[in-house]
């Protein structure tokens, strides 16, 4: 799941300050689950922005819609009439959703209402943690399903750095040492011998360093 967090009210107020009619678009998928950009969050932000703008003697008319997914044209097309009625759009989706709206409506300003954070999971109520960096070359099979690329601060691929204390990372004492977790996990699944494998330097060509990536699945192309 993509995890995001809301921008502050003053920041959003400043972003839309030159517009008098604004459409807030929520997304019903990842950001609804992480309580950042779903119908409820959009509604609360609409109240906050309306009141803040009114107090600044610069009232704004706000319309709000939440669609199932902002990263797919099939759902975005339902927004056409509402986008036409407004001067600008604030997308409460991940960065992909914001850009999908911007591409779909080339003549309309589209702003981000959230800060997209990472690919992660719900750890406990209202706590999300990062689990994947989308590096494009998954090595999870070697590490018992625990990703040292994401979860080790030093991205160590061949054992721990030696700096962990009480099973926790020396960079952030609140974060468990990824290699401690890998060791326990490999032991639990009877694959502790994998600790002795030498993992060659990671192939970073599939990662994001060379700019935006693209996936083409020829077998599904028409």
């Amino acid at each position: 799941m993509i995890v995001a967090s809301p921008k502050s009210i003053p920041e959003l107020k400043e972003i839309i300050q030159s517009h008098q009619k604004v459409l807030l678009v929520g997304c019903g998928t990842c950001v609804t689950v992480c309580l950042a950009g779903g119908e409820r969050e959009v509604s609360i932000m609409a109240y906050a922005l309306r009141m803040a703008r009114k107090l600044a003697s610069n009232p704004v008319r706000i319309e709000q819609i939440t669609i199932e997914r902002q990263c797919e044209n099939e759902f975005i097309k339902d927004l056409t009439a509402a986008v036409d009625r407004n001067e600008a759009v604030v997308s409460f989706a991940c960065g992909a959703g914001v850009q999908a709206l911007a591409e779909r409506f080339p003549n309309k300003p589209v702003y981000a209402g959230l800060n997209t954070q990472f690919l992660g999971i719900l750890e406990e109520q209202a706590v999300w943690t990062e689990k994947c960096m989308a590096c494009g070359d998954c090595l999870l099979h070697k590490f018992g399903g625990i990703c040292p690329v994401t979860r080790c601060a030093k991205r160590m691929l061949n054992g721990p750095c030696g700096g962990s204390q009480e099973d926790h990372c020396e960079v952030d004492p609140d974060r468990p040492c990824a290699w401690q977790l890998i060791y326990k996990r490999l032991g639990a699944i009877g694959q502790l011998d994998r600790m002795e494998d030498i993992v060659p330097p990671k192939d970073w060509r599939n990662a994001w360093h060379a700019g935006a990536r693209k996936v083409v699945r020829k077998e599904h192309r028409t």
């Binding site: 502050s8 009210i9 609360i44 906050a48 009141m51 803040a52 107090l55």
Partner: peptide, 8 residues
């Protein structure tokens, strides 16, 4: 917190 940020 919201009310503080809004100015109310």
């Amino acid at each position: 917190e919201i009310l503080d940020q809004v100015g109310i």
